[in-house]
């Protein structure tokens, strides 16, 4: 119990202290579709973070396709390549990038906001994961990451180059507070 109170306090403090760089973070609206790019388990972590936030109208579909997002206002893509995850989902890397590219294009066409997240830190960086970030960050409206994922400035540079607002949190558990702040 003490731990949970402490975590809540910590989260609130970081909601205030969090660093937001560059362009303003857009206001987001429900309902939300959460999916993954790369099938890492980060999307499951994001679902838990949404559960712990004030946002209640969200759905998690790890293989959602472009024709299944009608009526949603926000698309959250948790990016990170996992060979185990791709195997579990029965999709290969190329198939996954095609699915997510089509998904974002459809989302943009219907006026949805697109969020790209990396909440698994340095362990979910690497050639395949970086390929996903390079593809999808420029197509997004907001990027949220944990600091550990940006030790080489990869996300800072990518977001600066494409004028995408970037929010960096210290720990993934702080993402819930960030969501509360940006959802109307």
């Amino acid at each position: 119990m003490k731990k949970r109170v402490f975590l809540l306090a910590f989260t609130l403090v970081f909601a205030i202290l969090v660093i937001a760089n560059g362009p303003a973070v857009p206001k987001l609206a429900e309902p939300v579709m959460i999916t993954t790019a790369g099938q890492s388990a980060g999307a499951a972590m994001m679902k838990v973070l949404f559960t712990k936030s004030n946002i209640k109208d969200f759905v998690f579909e790890k293989l959602v396709t472009a024709d299944e997002i009608e009526g949603y206002e926000t698309l959250v893509i948790v990016a990170g390549a996992s060979s185990k995850g791709l195997g579990a989902a029965g999709i290969d890397f190329d198939g996954e990038t095609q699915r997510v590219t089509a998904l974002i294009e459809a989302a943009k066409k219907q006026g949805m906001k697109v969020v790209v997240a990396q909440i698994e830190g340095a362990a979910r960086r690497g050639t395949s994961s970086d390929q996903l970030f390079s593809l999808f960050v420029p197509m997004s409206d907001w990027v949220i990451i944990v600091r550990d994922a940006d030790s080489d400035g990869f996300f800072t540079n990518l977001c600066e180059e494409h004028g995408i607002p970037l929010t960096i949190v210290e720990k993934s558990i702080e993402v819930s507070a960030q969501l509360n702040a940006v959802f109307e």
């Binding site: 975590l7 910590f10 099938q39 890492s40 388990a41 980060g42 499951a44 972590m45 838990v48 973070l49 996992s82 185990k84 995850g85 195997g87 579990a88 029965g90 698994e120 830190g121 340095a122 362990a123 979910r124 944990v146 720990k171 993934s172 558990i173």
Partner: peptide, 17 residues
């Protein structure tokens, strides 16, 4: 997430079917 909060490096993997 709790382990990460404690600065214990951790990744999460889903068991492939």
């Amino acid at each position: 997430m709790y382990l990460e909060f404690d600065d214990i490096p951790i990744t999460l993997e889903q068991s492939p079917k």
